[in-house]
Design a binder for these strands. Structure first.
Lengths: 121, 121
DNA sequence: CGGAATCCTGATTGATACTG
DNA sequence: CAGTATCAATCAGGATTCCG
């Protein structure tokens, strides 16, 4: 990226900046330990069941999975669908807002890879 | 975003996925409380002095500013320049890797704004 | 001016056991 | 199957003080 492009982008963002910082706001929503792993698994395979999701994410406890799913639901990134059967069957689905995150993740992916390559040298 | 675009992006990213997750990796670098605020101020005005940066960020303690700056330096996002004078004069500058973050921040910005608007309803 | 050293607290996360 | 309920540990971050 040349210096001009960098400065233009910085200025563009700064002009649009509200009182709250949208960047920090995003981080507060997806920044806790398990949010990205959960959302990523839902991006790859939407509509998963609780226990399947738990196996896919790997290493997460019930406490944290439940807590994270509730927060994601409250923030409007996923929807919880339960049919009322016994034994229960619950699936989790991305909302449009949740799916939009794939753009952000793409940038985080590319930058992370670049950084990782730099750190390997 | 239509469903096709979403699925294509997901598949593209999944195919490129290494053993480590670059998304999670990025988050581990910029996810702690003060990283984004510090980097943002440097994006707006590169080459700031320690105390000026402290005032610009606002609310940060010496402990956390120093710690964050050291980590950003170790991770290759900023450079610390000190002339050897007394009293000391130290400035912090973004590296190219640090400047590249402006793309990621742009996405976090846009998504955060969208989310905030949705939460206001 | 640009920090370092120490101590301390509260929030985040984890472990374990249990349930409709 | 899809969670809840406690309790324990950890750890990031903050407060305070001091220094070359």
């Amino acid at each position: 990226m040349d210096q001009k492009t960098f400065e233009n982008k910085a200025e563009q963002l700064n002009e649009k900046m509200p009182e709250y910082c949208p960047i920090t706001y995003s981080m507060s929503i997806i920044g806790s330990k398990w949010k990205i792993p959960i959302l990523w698994k839902l991006i790859l395979d939407d509509g998963q069941h609780y226990n399947h999701l738990k196996r896919m994410v790997g290493g997460i406890t019930n406490t944290m999975l439940t807590k994270s799913l509730r927060e994601l639901e409250d923030d409007g990134l996923i929807l919880r669908h339960s049919d009322g059967t016994v034994p229960p069957s619950v699936t989790y689905h991305l909302t449009d807002l949740g799916k939009d995150l794939v753009y952000t993740m793409e940038e985080l992916f590319d930058w992370g890879q670049k950084l990782h390559a730099a750190h390997e040298e």
